[in-house]
Amino acid sequence: MTKDIIREIKSGNKEAFEDLYNKYADYALRVAFAVTRSNANAADAVQETFIRINSNIDTFKDENPFDPWFYKILINECRRVLKINSIKNSSMDIMANDLYLSVNRTPKFEEYEDLYFAIEKLDEINRIPIILKYLKGFSEKDISHILSLNINTVKSRLYKGRLKLKNFLKVFDEGWSDYEG
């Protein structure tokens, strides 16, 4: 289905791009929020991702899977936005994010709240591969392509990320403020 949409976009069908946006926007926003930890930064990254997709769709090779290409652009945009906005979140931003999470929480999120909180605590180097592998379902090979890393580096980051998550979850009941990671 996605390949059909891409063919339509390449042929000049403007409505097909809207279909592509509708198919990917929500998931992209969730991934971008998990990477950037900010609603505003996530929205900026997703917007820029779709702009780049639209202007570079002709370079996409139809025989390749679309998802890794899309998420590579999204992750790069998240990184670019984070670099531009490298100033730490103010306490107002943190409160806004906490409010967003509490208002937009779904039952599934509540079931896994500790895990999502632990993932959010990971450093970017481990958080992004964990998100791509376990929340988006990409293979290590796809992740290595998306992040432009050696597959063994991806495996190492996933392993270390899982260990950190395990440690985070062990100490969760004792309180996060004492944990150094």
Score class of each variant (00 low, 15 high):
Leu122Glu: 00
Lys133Thr: 03
Val154Asn: 04
Glu8Val: 00
Leu149Ser: 02
Phe33Gly: 01
Ile84His: 11
Ile51Leu: 12
Val103Glu: 13
Asn54Val: 12
Tyr27Lys: 07
Val171Asp: 13
Asn152Ile: 13
Lys141Glu: 13
Ile84Gln: 14
Ala43Asn: 15
Asn150Lys: 07
His145Pro: 01
Arg52Gly: 14
Asp44Val: 06
Ile84Lys: 12
Gly161Met: 01
Ile87Tyr: 15
Ala42Phe: 04
Asp4Lys: 09
Lys166Trp: 05
Asp62Ile: 09
Asp93Ser: 07
Asn64Trp: 10
Phe66Arg: 06
Phe70Ser: 04
Val103Trp: 03
Asp26Arg: 12
Asp93Tyr: 10
Gly161His: 01
Leu132Trp: 01
Asp123Ala: 14
Val46Met: 09
Asn13Gln: 06
Gln47Glu: 15
Ile9Cys: 15
Gly175Asn: 02
Leu20Lys: 05
Val35Phe: 00
Leu163Phe: 03
Glu174Met: 13
Glu124Ile: 07
Pro107Leu: 04
Asp142Tyr: 02
Met1Asn: 14
Trp69Asn: 13
Ile151Trp: 03
Ser156Asp: 14
Tyr71Asn: 05
Lys136Gly: 00
Ile151Ser: 14
Ile125Trp: 04
Lys155Ala: 14
Ser55Cys: 12
Tyr71Pro: 02
Glu180Phe: 13
Ile73Gly: 01
Asn13Arg: 12
Phe60Leu: 08
Asn13His: 06
Ile73His: 02
Phe168Met: 00
Tyr24Val: 06
Ala32Val: 03
Ile53Cys: 10
Trp176Pro: 01
Phe50Ile: 11
Leu135Lys: 02
Glu77Asp: 08
Asp58His: 15
Ala96Thr: 14
Val154Gln: 07
Ile119Gly: 00
Val31Met: 08
Tyr24Ala: 05
Phe60Gly: 05
Tyr112Ile: 05
Lys83Val: 07
Asp62Cys: 03
Leu20Pro: 05
Ser144Pro: 02
Asn39Trp: 08
Glu18His: 09
Asn76Ile: 01
Thr49Ser: 13
Leu158Cys: 05
Lys88Thr: 14
Glu63Arg: 09
Val103Asp: 09
Asn89Arg: 12
Arg37Met: 01
Glu18Trp: 03
Trp69Thr: 07
Thr153Asp: 10
Glu77Trp: 03
Gly175Tyr: 04
Asn104Thr: 10
Lys170Asn: 10
